[in-house]
């Protein structure tokens, strides 16, 4: 056992549990203070995934569920790096991806939004970072969609991500937004972030990776808790 050596969640940028504007937090946010515990091997380890967990088309959401043609919508390529808080790359770490289609419809059966499904787009994928912590995947730009949080509520365009990093303290589930989206000023999920955290979730349009006659490029870096020197063991 030892005292925490991994930085805790940075509350200057991380959202609180309770954000009343986002109504479902009201009955689901813990009300008691979190108990700080010493770190043990339980916290300094976590699941390790590798190339065997990623299929050949998992990084290309425009192709990984094609049935009878190309998915509809604006093709994009998203790239960036996964880093720790000291700026060191997090190599060979898994990123899981899920999103709505171009019409703002999720494949999920609970999604009742009256917008078309796309038979050629499931909207989920996975990618591993390389030795320098870089990743890249292809997808369709997700559409905005309505939700029932309040009257005329719409979620901005966003892509969901799940990352593991080296241990369970570095676990991250988040959403990436797009620059210039007018809905960001009206979205209680995005606005739940402290002001310093908001720009950290907006990707950057990137002409350098935009592929001529093919796909618009966006760049987005993930910064996980901790430092690369954090001791951890692999499975």
């Amino acid at each position: 056992m030892s005292q925490p050596t991994i930085p805790l969640f940075d509350r200057e940028v991380q959202p609180p549990y309770l954000a009343p504007g986002y109504k479902s937090t009201v009955l689901r946010a813990p009300t008691q203070p979190l108990v700080v515990i010493p770190h043990s091997l339980s916290e300094r380890t976590g699941p390790v995934f590798g190339a065997a967990n990623v299929g050949p088309l998992d990084h290309d959401l425009t192709k990984n569920s094609m049935k009878n043609g190309e998915p509809l919508g604006e093709r994009i390529v998203v790239h960036g790096r996964v880093l720790d808080e000291t700026g060191r790359p997090v190599p060979h770490t898994l990123i899981e991806i899920w999103q709505a289609n171009a019409a703002g419809r999720y494949v999920h059966k609970v999604d009742q939004h009256d917008a078309p499904l796309d038979p050629n787009f499931l909207g989920t994928g996975r990618v591993l970072t390389d030795a320098e912590g870089r990743y890249k995947f292809y997808t369709i730009k997700p559409g905005a969609y309505p939700w029932s949080n309040h009257y005329n509520a719409w979620r901005p365009n966003h892509i969901h991500f799940s990352l593991f990093g080296p241990n369970i303290t570095t676990r991250l589930v988040t959403q990436m937004y797009f620059p210039g989206d007018p809905l960001l000023d009206h979205d209680p999920v995005f606005l739940s972030l402290p002001p310093k955290g908001r720009s950290l979730l907006i990707c950057r349009f990137d002409m350098a990776v935009t592929e001529p006659h093919f796909a618009l490029g966006y760049q987005f870096d993930f910064v996980l808790r901790g430092s690369g020197s954090t001791p951890f063991e692999t499975v």
């Binding site: 930085p7 969640f9 940075d10 200057e12 940028v13 991380q14 959202p15 986002y22 880093l83 720790d84 808080e85 000291t86 700026g87 899981e96 991806i97 899920w98 709505a100 999720y106 494949v107 999920h108 609970v110 999604d111 499931l122 909207g123 989920t124 969901h160 799940s162 991250l172 589930v173 988040t174 959403q175 999920v189 995005f190 972030l193 310093k196 955290g197 950290l200 979730l201 870096d221 993930f222 910064v223 996980l224 808790r225």
Partner: peptide, 19 residues
């Protein structure tokens, strides 16, 4: 560097995380 903030997993994670 600042940590990437968390956001909710949302209601539609199933086809991505537990397909």
């Amino acid at each position: 560097m600042r940590q990437t903030p968390s956001q909710t997993v949302g209601p539609y994670f199933a086809y991505g995380l537990t397909p």
